[in-house]
Nucleic acid binder design. Structure first.
Lengths: 220, 220, 220, 220
DNA sequence: CATGAATGAGGGTTCATTCAT
DNA sequence: TATGAATGAACCCTCATTCAT
């Protein structure tokens, strides 16, 4: 893991990883609840199952915890996203599946994503840059999927922007849940958004009929 | 203004408004720079041009400042958005104009929007609810514009979701500027996003050609 | 009144007295409720019916208010005590009446007495001394009543101590009400305490001589 | 000790007791000098020999210090009072000895008692109730001594009131020292007061009958 | 390696007092 | 005289971080 960016005074690497995982788990629980700023290092230590002294054997700064947490979240997103992308049979259907998987993933990780959104900006420059790169990477993955799945000769800029849009709208499902999740089921949300993406990608042919579940004859 | 929700021990309402405006201005400057949590009430007072004692004559809690700031931002967004919406001649062109105005507005207010995104979640429930309502209102405004401008018989859900998408993608221009503004000019961004929206709204007729500025023949 | 010890920047003496009386009334109300330290000058001003600025036209320090209040309380006690003492017909019965009147007075002024007990010690030396002198005066009044009412040739020290005891037990009725007023009615309390005082006074006819640096064989 | 009512974030109970004792000692010194309200938590920390941070490891609120102090004072009074009470040979002489011991105790602890008198009323309800109970307990102890030492069949109410009076007059020796200690030596004070108490107690052999819901003809 | 007591800078907030109007 | 906005010292308390055991 890229945890290595963070210095620890403990030598045993396995132990470091173990403790940090405890720490990340504990911290995420707390950050979900009260956010980074309102969470105490003491609380993190306690929730992680060890003492404040021990906590500081594995990090140097409270901000290190934030970094570790964000890093872990991105890592997890990435892993699941990678698993969902099956490049062997690139096809339009596959693209839809990837989008669906990604949205479902965002649904699972709603609260983690909120952590990212709220706290990334309060990291110090260098750390933040590292974390933002992860976002770029992930958007990049979506770009690749698009390129490989869509036959049409898409403009590069469109690919980039649509990848970005997919990425964003996935996150928004959780981030704006107070609004969206009161008006849509996850499935509805996915279907509609996917539909828009497909239109933008010039794939509008035979998909009207998919709009079944709500009588809306959305004459496209 | 709805500033009135916040109690002040000063009676003169004009003065209250004046001082609070100073305060909001000062606070926004600081919040942009370091975020709410890292900003001190003392700093806010100083930046606003008065003493810490005076600050507390006009608010009760540091969180009140946050509320005032968010409220002011939404207020400003709303006003400009309302000004941009001209319902007298509802037309597809008008919709495009509104979207453009809104995106330009989001460009102007990038940093303010970042404040909203980062801090709203750290407000106490009641306050947050008040602020979220503002977002709902604004999405509602976009919904109305869509309905009145688009001739097609759109599904309610599509209207809602597309209004939401417009709203979100506008905010994202600022929020994700580290990525988007390195790859697109504002004009490009607006054009492409608008194009997608129009497609989704079933308005794809004769608009391909508009894609001039970047040779991308985006064969849709 | 001895209010004059406190400087005011207002010249009109009648006005000064009027305002100060408002102030004393307001302050007592508040001090009863929350004590001197927990009461704000602003609150005092408001309760008195004028502004904080006006308050400071009539005093110089918050402590001045405390002084004024204590002074007023002692004044009131003194006046009522004086009214109760009728030296024209000094007799044992009269003594009992005075005691009863004093105890009833202490019942009426319970909360005021509590103010004295709690706050006098937190005055600055000079002010406190002035106020303590009032207590001495009042004990002195009781001494005089005893001397004039009791025929027996009492030892000076006994007079002093018994006057003190009467004074104290009167105050205690209010100060220890959480205990005493749950176990006694005022009338019971007066009767019993009076009875003890009378015993202490009456017995001396035959025991004066014992009081010589105390072989004290407590001949009961 | 009942210090346990106050939470500490330090686990080691011995250390907690040690530090709290330092704290109590330091605080008493300061409270004697300037009272609770005029004493700063920082001052308490400093006087106790540790930092402000450490102080707050052992308490939660400034008021906790007050509670600890009051509790400790009562504790000490109680212990010394208990030691003075020897019920094995209950006798009138024994009663006199107890009174003397108690008064001497009050002489030793004058300033501590003043703290109690001034500050108890400014505690929050729950805390105060706890502390007042201590007073009731101590008066109760005196009641027991009276009952066991005095052969006469005393009215319950007289026992209660006289126990209260003893308790109060003991405290007054310190509380009114500015008056009493200028007019009496401790020994004189004890002898005279004791004499009055004895009269009140012994006289009842022949006056029991009066004590029937008070026709009280105060046969002096 | 683990612990947790100690530290103190710094944060939010209050409130007595002043002074221009 | 009366007002009340302005001031800032000072208060209580928190919490990231260190270090001796």
């Amino acid at each position: 893991m890229r945890q290595n960016k963070i210095l620890s005074s403990v030598k045993d690497e396995n132990l470091v990883e173990k403790r940090r995982n405890q720490m990340i788990k504990g911290a995420i629980t707390l950050f979900k609840e009260k956010g980074f700023h309102r969470t105490t290092t003491r609380e993190i230590a306690k929730e992680s199952g060890f003492s404040i002294g021990t906590l500081y054997e594995y990090i140097r700064t409270k901000e290190d915890v934030l970094f570790l947490v964000c890093d872990a979240i991105y890592q997890q997103v990435r892993e699941r996203l990678e698993a969902a992308i099956d490049l062997k049979k690139p096809s339009v259907d596959n693209l839809e599946n990837v989008i669906r998987s990604y949205f479902e993933l965002m649904d699972d990780m709603q609260e983690e994503v909120i952590i990212l959104y709220q706290e990334v900006k309060s990291m110090k420059k260098e750390t933040r840059e590292y974390v933002l790169q992860k976002e770029r990477d992930m958007v990049g993955m979506l770009e690749e999927v698009i390129v490989s799945c869509v036959p049409a000769d898409l403009a590069k800029q469109d690919v980039k922007l649509l990848a970005n849009n997919i990425f964003v709208q996935g996150q928004m499902w959780g981030f704006r849940r107070w609004m969206l999740q009161k008006q849509f089921t996850l499935d509805e949300y996915i279907k509609r958004q996917t539909h828009y993406f497909m239109q933008a990608l010039a794939i509008h042919k035979n998909t009207n009929d998919r709009r079944i579940d709500d009588g809306t004859s959305a004459t496209v």
